[in-house]
Design a protein around this nucleic acid. Structure first.
Lengths: 151, 151
DNA sequence: GCACCAAATGCTACAATGTTGCAAGACGAC
DNA sequence: GTCGTCTTGCAACATTGTAGCATTTGGTGC
């Protein structure tokens, strides 16, 4: 479940390398993202911070995440609901699709499924990045019976 | 770029065919979506309603759009910001990708670019639909110079 | 170890988007 | 035209995210 290839210690180095101050919030949030196998919402991160005994408020968390995204340490993805989700960036060049369970709202990463390259774009348009999100039901919610449903 | 195959008059029939009452709000909203070449946000639809002299309030518009989506007459897409955007469904089987301009927030449809089929999914997962959103800058905002930017 | 300063944080207030409950009004069948 | 039910409009609230500002803290120089 944890990504053993990236020891938690590197979080401190990665933060310092960007010229940012190594604060407990940044440290814990980045370690959390690095250890999570799926993108986390603000709520989930906030709960984890509370569980870890790190004092924080909503605004600080927003700013911490903004900073991580700005520094290229985390990525922001649209979770389907109107809340963002965040994941650690392991390899800036590597991108992958996401699966959003319409039942439980959970988002999982789909390694090995890269968004298709852009083709057929009107002239003048410049593509920065592509986001591919599959919607349906995850294994835990499994509802094959409602397959035909259109949304 | 308008879909001449579906004259505005059919909006009334499509609503009635679903067993719903034909109200001015539903009629105007559906016609608006059918005539628009790109997905519209609540705000844009609300402004158009006001311009058309149709009384309405925010909640009614939300419910009207919910109803249209529920009936398969409209589709809801995540616009990048935390607000939904809506587009008319012309052909339930036909899907296309969208382009979101990170500058002006505008969303345009990319006909001819279907989301890639789902592969490499964990077992037990069931895909209902795929959403492919390209991010970048549209022709009007054209900012080729900031191409390397990571978000 | 101590002082200092810019960077982070925490707090309050606010904005935007969306939802719920309920009474009043309008559509459509008769 | 009457009537029942579906829609609407209103008010209040929930969630997600931002802005301004005083306070605290990390990190640097001494």
């Amino acid at each position: 479940m944890f990504d053993a290839a990236i020891p938690p210690a590197s979080a401190r180095e990665r933060i310092a390398a960007r010229g940012g101050r190594v604060t407990r919030t940044r440290l814990v949030v980045l370690e959390l993202l690095q250890c999570s196998e799926h993108p986390l919402s603000h709520d989930e991160i906030g709960d984890a911070l509370a569980a870890a005994g790190v004092a924080h408020d909503r605004v600080t968390l927003y700013r911490t995440l903004d900073w991580l995204v700005e520094q290229g340490l985390a990525r922001r993805i649209a979770g389907g609901e109107r809340a963002w989700r965040f994941e650690a960036v392991r390899d800036a060049a590597h991108r992958h699709a996401h699966f959003h369970c319409d039942r439980c709202g959970q988002v999982v990463c789909l390694e090995g499924l890269e968004p298709a390259p852009a083709t057929g774009l009107p002239s003048g348009f410049h593509v920065d990045r592509a986001e591919l999100v599959l919607h349906g039901s995850c294994a835990a919610c499994g509802l094959g019976s409602e397959a035909g449903r259109v949304r």
